[in-house]
Write a protein that binds this DNA or RNA. Structure first.
Lengths: 188, 188
DNA sequence: GTCTATAACGAGATAGAC
DNA sequence: GTCTATCTCGTTATAGAC
């Protein structure tokens, strides 16, 4: 891993833990093992770093979604795998980077906002596909469009992660995920 | 309104817009019309201010919930009124103070965490009551306990507010609320 | 590409006069 | 209860040597 990737990895973790405005170049520099002035060679401004973080995070998500889509399983298992991504984040006491950036949205450089919107679109579009797949496999029963159910799922998972991480109540998170899946699963 | 209340009102709005760590005593002082040193007379430290903010926000919510509970309407209308609280927040480009504090949770003074947990409990307990009421009125069909559905509703509303405020997509927020309510509403 | 050094600013907090 | 003045520290960012 080269220095630029190392910086991005460290900064990503810091955003997910503290938020975009609550860590400094000094924090990154210490963990990467270089001086903070050197960071500006790779990312001239913090806004530039933020844009790059959103890009790489969306790319990481896309890789995960492609991996899940390629699994030789039905749609219900794919949805479970997607929810597991949030569960893993909670176990690491990390918020989703997109959700964290969203909470900071009013203070972010405007250059970061398109990348943020793109991240949420990536999630809902993939979810809508999996929901439609599950519907045609007679696994899911949807009471509205797949796109609407995708929006509800993403919002509920982001919210559940947000709350559970703050309260430390992992059981509540698991119950929310369970009920979300159950509520669209065909009975019997 | 005395000075202390004025400070709390201004600080609350700033938290809901920017987060607890992204505004300063200088911001409050300017809007209240006093010097920032004077703020320390009312709230010696920012953590003290944070604890007070959570207390007053929970008290405000409690007043709203009591008002809604006292309305001469059925449970479905009460649930609608609750969702409208989030809708109003979105229109003001404000996050829920609890949700915002939750995103900052790893950086908050530990004295603030019990008040934060209490805020979420207040929401879910009231929601569970209204859901149980609606079930006995044959308005709602629940596939799990009222408490579980309450958790899903709160998480989804917090998440929907978080995302919609960042993307500017108010229509998506409305569709999420509509589907959440529809999914527990008895058909016919 | 990394370094030392520093600029320029804003943060929370305190002392002490009025 | 509010003020002026100040302290100490941390922030992003830049200049210029190596």
């Amino acid at each position: 891993m080269d220095t630029k990737e190392h910086i991005l990895a460290v900064a990503q973790k810091l955003v997910q833990q503290r938020g975009f405005n609550d860590f400094s170049y000094a924090d990154i520099a210490e963990e990467v093992g270089i001086r903070k002035a050197s960071l500006h060679h790779h990312f001239a401004t913090k806004a530039e770093l933020g844009v790059a973080l959103l890009e790489t995070y969306s790319a990481q998500l896309n890789n995960e979604l492609l991996r899940i889509s390629a699994l030789p399983v039905k749609a219900d298992a794919k949805l479970n795998a997607y929810c597991s991504l949030f569960q893993s984040s909670l176990q690491a006491k990390c918020m989703c980077l997109g959700g964290m950036m969203a909470s900071d949205s009013l203070t972010l450089d405007k250059a970061m906002l398109p990348g943020l919107k793109h991240f949420f679109d990536l999630n809902t579009e993939w979810l809508a596909e999996v929901l439609a797949e599950g519907k045609s496999q007679k696994l899911f029963v949807l009471t509205s469009t797949a796109a609407d159910h995708a929006r509800v799922l993403l919002a509920a998972l982001e919210g559940a992660l947000l709350i559970a991480r703050a309260t430390g109540d992992h059981e509540t998170f698991d119950r929310i995920v369970w009920l979300l899946i159950k509520s669209i699963t065909r009975k019997g």
